[in-house]
Design a protein around this nucleic acid. Sequence first.
DNA 1: CAATTAGTATACTCTACGGTGTAGTTTATA
DNA 2: TATAAACTACACCGTAGAGTATACTAATTG
Lengths: 213, 213
Amino acid sequence: MSIAQPSETPARRGPGRPVSLTKRRAMLDAAIREFQAHGYDGASMDAIAASSDVSKRTLYNHFASKEVLFRSLVEEMGQRVSVFSKIEYSPDVPLREQLTRYAQDSARLIQDGETLALFRAILAEHVRNPKLVASAMEHYWRDEYGFAGWVSAACRDGKLRAPSPKRASRHFSSLIKGAVVWPVVFEQRVLTPREARAAIEEAVEMFLGYYAT
Amino acid sequence: MSIAQPSETPARRGPGRPVSLTKRRAMLDAAIREFQAHGYDGASMDAIAASSDVSKRTLYNHFASKEVLFRSLVEEMGQRVSVFSKIEYSPDVPLREQLTRYAQDSARLIQDGETLALFRAILAEHVRNPKLVASAMEHYWRDEYGFAGWVSAACRDGKLRAPSPKRASRHFSSLIKGAVVWPVVFEQRVLTPREARAAIEEAVEMFLGYYAT
DNA sequence: CAATTAGTATACTCTACGGTGTAGTTTATA
DNA sequence: TATAAACTACACCGTAGAGTATACTAATTG
């Protein structure tokens, strides 16, 4: 159950062949491909091993089971998301600009091919078996809460008027996800940068139109 | 591949035991349960047969394969959605009321336990294998387009000002889904009627605030 | 070099499941 | 009541995949 830390330095504790991080990376990448293509059940450890040019046994030496492997991916996804979905209130930058940047980060993250593939695999599994995946998804949903903090700050600064920052943040999230996340995830839509920008701009506009003082 | 019609009258074409619609229903219901609980691959025909108190052979006599069975469910889902997601513009009913009713229908539909289970199963599969499911999901996404018609009508009637009715309808859809659909589907949130009503009201408010003339 | 650990190749077990075949039972119609 | 279809019970087949065992080679360090 314990997930290997992404420590870049293999522990040197005596003689012996050092563990290959390259191989580990290859296994994870192959796993992403397979899980995305065939889902959790459909993906086979044999295929993952083959596709990463690693013997099945090695795969099992790195990841004790299919579930552990999947969980590692989930963990990784959590990292990516939490790195991106940060927003801090800056009093001297126009709200419009801050919001736009935040939304664009979301859009960019989900447009990235590998992240999208991984997200799809996780989402599919999450819908079926929320527990398996809860921790990572929380990162994802929680971005709304982080954003709620931003809204509160903006309110305190007198630039927004939101009776409930949480609701307001949900509104913004809904608009952004509806515009540039779900279409990509569900409908295979590829948004051109122009489209994405336009959609974001309008969402921001609507949000500010309603909440800005 | 041909999907059995939901005709309530079994064709009477001579002697012989008539096909039992009760059993058919039981199989479909069991299938919903199993697909939801274990996903497409995870669900087993044996389990579905057992859970519906029907012999495996009968199950296969009704549905030639697992895929056919699943497709029948998808079809059914399409029906449910398209029945609910109808909205027609009425010039003499306040917009607020029409929108609210429409949103509440969406909310009610997804709150229904069986529909929710079915929707989850289909969604999970859709993310993985869009083709298998495309037809039904189209019903679902299309509701936005139906709604776009409503927006256009309201504009013609001078009650809304929306440069792009399609975008406007997407905005509304995003707000509603973000408020009362995705939380239920993804986060297992159970919305009390009060919560749902409040969330819808605010979404409607925001929409009208931005688009109403 | 010796020791030790990582990785390989391959064969194997066990289980689960999709789908079929069959012989018999039930429930209807004409 | 004869006939025909729906349904049952159950054995069966083939395959695929998770995980293991083993005997090997490769790459390190002291």
